[in-house]
Nucleic acid binder design. Structure first.
Length: 271
DNA sequence: AAAAGCCCCTGGATGC
DNA sequence: TGCATCCAGGGGCTTT
């Protein structure tokens, strides 16, 4: 589910409401991808200062220098409300605060909640340290992006997914951005010209920003922390459209596998 | 060092 | 209806 747009939409949907809340209690369900990394009781009494995002991670800044990292994995979503329905079997983390309850719902449990002593802790460094540049920020320069592609000997789509050149682009938006840029997903990253890299950079920024505006993509069950579903899937040019006509040239959209992930593209519009 | 595969887990869709 | 198989928005770890 959650690529950069879904994570950002989630952040926007509760960051202000949870600010200044004091943590009253914590409940943990089944194990997630990683252990919490500290005693849950360390959370009690702390105040939520802010909620930031880095790539597909949410960074919840807490008082006393603590940092709560939340990753939604493939099937995770957050809810935040004064009153939530009774917790179900797939609700694996709950933070009860003076402003409401923050709950992580994650059937597949590829998600994670990690409590660390700040962004420079070993754990935070391990999880965030190798992340590439933020695509919607000022640091996403054409020259650096082109150089990042240049030095990779795999397909451009796999470089986008890897997240060490640019973060936040997952399987949906990689296919979409490559379509918008007119680039075949199988093209070797090292063979992308500066002009095409510039086009791809613009396409990534465009598609991610528009997806945020549309509330993200709800393929199955994504919703933001206030329960809103996303609508970007309705705007998708290629993702999930194998066999359907290209919205630009009407030739059938093709599907292939790259690194155990499905890729969708138009064989005519993308070269 | 970089790339390719494997694996974590649950549930829905599809096929026999 | 029942059961097997495949697939899914991610990404760290191990093996080549």
């Amino acid at each position: 589910m959650p690529e950069l747009p879904e994570v950002e939409v989630t952040r926007l949907s509760f960051a202000e409401r949870i600010a200044d809340a004091r943590i009253l209690a914590v409940r943990m369900g089944k194990p997630l991808r990683w252990p919490l990394g500290a005693e849950p009781t360390a959370l009690l009494g702390l105040t939520v200062m802010a909620v930031r995002r880095r790539g597909k991670y949410l960074l919840v800044d807490l008082s006393k220098g603590w940092l709560l990292l939340i990753h939604l994995g493939m099937s995770g979503s957050l809810s935040f409300a004064v009153e939530l329905p009774p917790a179900g079997v797939h609700d694996h983390f709950e933070l009860f605060t003076t402003h409401g309850t923050l709950r992580l719902h994650d059937p597949r449990r590829f998600g994670a909640v990690v409590l660390t002593e700040g962004e420079s802790s070993d754990m935070a460094e391990k999880l965030l340290g190798r992340l590439g540049v933020e695509p919607l920020g000022d640091g996403f320069g054409i020259g650096e992006f082109h150089a990042g592609l240049k030095r990779r000997n795999v397909s451009v789509k796999q470089v986008l997914l890897a997240g060490d050149v640019v973060v936040g682009v997952g399987n949906i938006y990689a296919s979409e951005a490559l379509f918008l840029a007119g680039i075949r997903p199988t093209t070797k990253a090292s063979r992308i010209s500066l002009a095409r890299a510039a086009k791809l950079r613009a396409a990534i920024r465009d598609v991610l920003a528009r997806a945020v505006t549309r509330g993200g993509s709800t393929l199955r069950d994504f919703s933001s922390a206030d329960g809103q579903t996303g609508y970007f899937q309705l705007d998708a040019m290629v993702y999930g459209r194998a066999g359907e006509p290209c919205r630009q040239c009407f030739n059938p959209i093709r599907q292939l596998r790259q690194g155990q992930r499905s890729t969708f593209y138009c064989g005519v519009c993308q070269t």
